[in-house]
Design a protein around this nucleic acid. Structure first.
Length: 575
RNA sequence: GGGGACGUGGUGUAGCCCGGACUAACACACCGGAUUGUCACUCCGGAGAGCGCGGGUUCAAAUCCCGUCGUCCCCGCCA
């Protein structure tokens, strides 16, 4: 269909005869004069119908085609990019009618999210959703351009595969040809991309759908998209970091015109936990925590002494300008701290000297030292907590973010990116078993290899996360490329040779036949686009997302299937 | 698995705490009419829900109670 684009008409088009097609965005019927805002993918332009009775039959979201002449407006509308002109209609053709709408595809949707999802085809017509879809396209295009220019090739890996040893629950697909057996949808292409490396694909990437059957959140969907990437002959994460800094900076520039400062800071996991109480710290603001165990444990306050005795810590979270907080506000903060797992929260403030309920227990000298270490100035507050290190760090970390938000200490429009490095290789599960912190194919750091069996928890991994404004954007590692080391790791994790062979023998075989050193990373694409779009939910940047129970209000999925389908798959339901 | 919030015409809300004047209100959308410069057009008129569903309490339930379903947020879970 030959046509001009509504949103592109300007004063320079005045006098031209044009054909336009699109949706009726609004109708203003003044009798023998009718104005219609016509919308297509490019934007909106005003049509003028004079003495055309058909114009009275137009309804919102009807699809029409018109021809007419571009004219300057008597009264331009500065709110519209095409506001200097209008099109006087000569012919009108109604291509499709629309029934009354559940909601108008205007900027301000009043419809609930459920209604929006049920009528997603209407919702996506809104300018904001169109912008989000286009932004997402820009991001994936920029990624493909950049990586392609760097010599990476995109390779597709199977959607129907076998259950890979990731941590999450798998979505299963029954096999008809082999009754009783199942495919799994991939949680990530982890093993396939490593096999590609072993296959001589030295630089691989894929923008790929991944599936995890876990509960949903505002930033979690059962199917989501990753930018998955892997490189051969990679031993030093720094090599990858500089490549990815280039990629990330390119995407930010292309997608939203922001120039990021590179390189991004590197922050060891241990330091992130100590200073920010999180392995994905929001570095847009300060409020850095300090360790006070050595000052306060021996100071004569029982709670602190006992915490230290049990191997715990005493930590402080400074709150600049917090000295004037009322008793009620402090109580509320303590309540939040308790919800986050603390057994209590004490405070200290600097205001014409140092004041604290601790004063009578530990004395002024100690308090002054504490204030000095925390770098407190007059008018500042320090929140104090004691207990097991992990608990205290995490809880104060949560408080740090919460207080910064509440008190407006988070700078808007700022992008704080950082690499978190030197993660531990293992962690203890709730049952006290060793588990991989990242995944079992992550390489330990060379200098820690001697402790692998003797003191596994002190072993660091060649593992890294990229965090942006307190959100984990990407996560990756240098992989194990020698089979012997892989078998040592399995052994430590309690995976015997038979189990290893059964679950991923195919992968171990690939490693055995000459695997180059390699490593890679995976980005959460939905989260990335969400942040770039300034949205609070990834559903706003996914064309057809699922609800919190994994349902699709548009299609009604998941749904029952025919008895015949089940019989063919030899499946009997037991509900 | 747990906690919290919510569910009222097509859509978004008010009413619910404190049951009765609710024959359920308002806005947008819709229908009819008027209208030659609007752009949230305006003006006049109209239709449209029995309050997610089921049960209970009561003389009386949108309102109180129990159950159930659905939506959203959070914790667990998600390496």
């Amino acid at each position: 269909m030959r046509r001009e684009h509504c949103g592109e008409l300007r004063e320079k088009n005045v006098g031209q005869r044009v054909t336009l097609a699109g949706w009726v965005h609004a109708v203003r019927d003044l009798g023998s004069l009718t104005f219609v805002d016509l919308r297509d993918g490019s934007g909106v332009v005003q049509l003028v119908f004079r003495e055309m009775p058909e114009a009275h039959t137009l309804g919102r979201e009807d699809v029409i085609r018109v021809t007419g002449k571009v004219r300057p407006r008597e009264k331009p509308n500065p709110a519209l990019t095409t506001g200097a002109v209008e099109v006087t209609v000569e012919t009108l053709e109604i291509l499709a009618k629309s029934p009354p709408l559940p909601f108008l595809p205007d900027e301000e949707v009043k419809a609930s999210e459920e209604t929006r999802l049920r009528y997603r085809f209407l919702d996506l017509r809104r300018a904001r959703m169109q912008r989000n879809l286009r932004l997402r396209h820009k991001v994936t295009l920029a990624i493909r351009q950049y990586l392609s220019a760097q010599g990476f090739i995109e390779v597709e890996t199977p959607m129907l595969t076998r259950s890979t040893p990731e941590g999450a629950r798998d979505f299963l697909v029954p096999s008809r040809l082999e009754p009783g057996k199942f495919y799994a949808l991939p949680q990530s292409p982890q093993l396939f991309k490593q096999i590609l490396i072993c296959s001589g694909v030295e630089k691989y990437f894929q923008i790929v759908r991944c599936f995890r059957d876990e509960d949903l959140r505002a930033d979690r969907q059962p199917e989501f998209t990753q930018l998955d990437l892997e490189m051969a002959f990679l031993e030093d994460p720094e090599e990858l970091f500089s490549l990815l800094e280039g990629l990330v900076a390119h995407v930010f520039r292309e997608a939203i015109g922001v120039d990021l400062a590179v390189p991004f800071p590197r922050l060891p996991y241990r330091e992130a936990m100590l200073r920010y109480g999180s392995d994905k710290p929001d570095l847009r603001f300060g409020l850095e925590m300090v360790d006070l165990t050595d000052l306060l444990a021996p100071a004569g306050f029982k709670v602190f002494a006992e915490a230290a005795q049990r191997g715990g810590v005493v930590r402080g979270l400074p709150l600049p300008g917090g000295a004037h907080l009322t008793r009620a506000e402090l109580n509320r903060i303590e309540e939040s701290g308790k919800n986050a797992g603390l057994s209590g929260l004490l405070w200290l403030k600097v205001e014409e000297g140092v004041h604290s309920p601790l004063e009578k227990h530990v004395g002024e000298g100690v308090l002054a030292n504490v204030a000095a270490r925390a770098g407190l100035a007059s008018g500042d507050l320090l929140l104090l907590a004691a207990g097991p290190e992990q608990t205290v760090a995490q809880a104060l970390g949560e408080l740090r973010v919460q207080l910064a938000r509440e008190r407006g200490l988070v700078p808007q429009g700022k992008w704080a990116l950082a690499w978190i490095v030197d993660f531990p290789l293992f962690k203890l599960s709730a049952e006290g078993r060793l588990e991989s912190e990242h995944h079992p194919f992550t390489s330990p750091k060379d200098e820690d290899l001697p402790f692998l069996e003797t003191d596994p928890l002190r072993v660091h991994a060649k593992c890294y996360d990229l965090v942006v404004n307190g959100v984990e954007l990407a996560s990756g590692s240098i992989r194990i490329h020698r089979r012997e080391l892989q078998e040592r790791i399995f052994k430590i994790l309690g995976i015997g040779p038979e189990e290893a062979e059964r679950r991923f023998g195919f992968f171990l075989r690939a490693l055995a036949y000459g695997a180059p050193p390699h490593g890679g990373i995976a980005f959460g694409l939905d989260r990335w686009v969400m942040m770039l779009a300034g949205e609070n939910s990834i559903r706003e940047v996914i064309a057809f997302p699922k609800t919190a129970t994994g349902a699709c209000p548009l299609t009604g999925a998941p749904a029952e299937v025919d008895e015949a389908q089940l019989r063919e798959l030899r499946i009997k339901l037991d509900l």
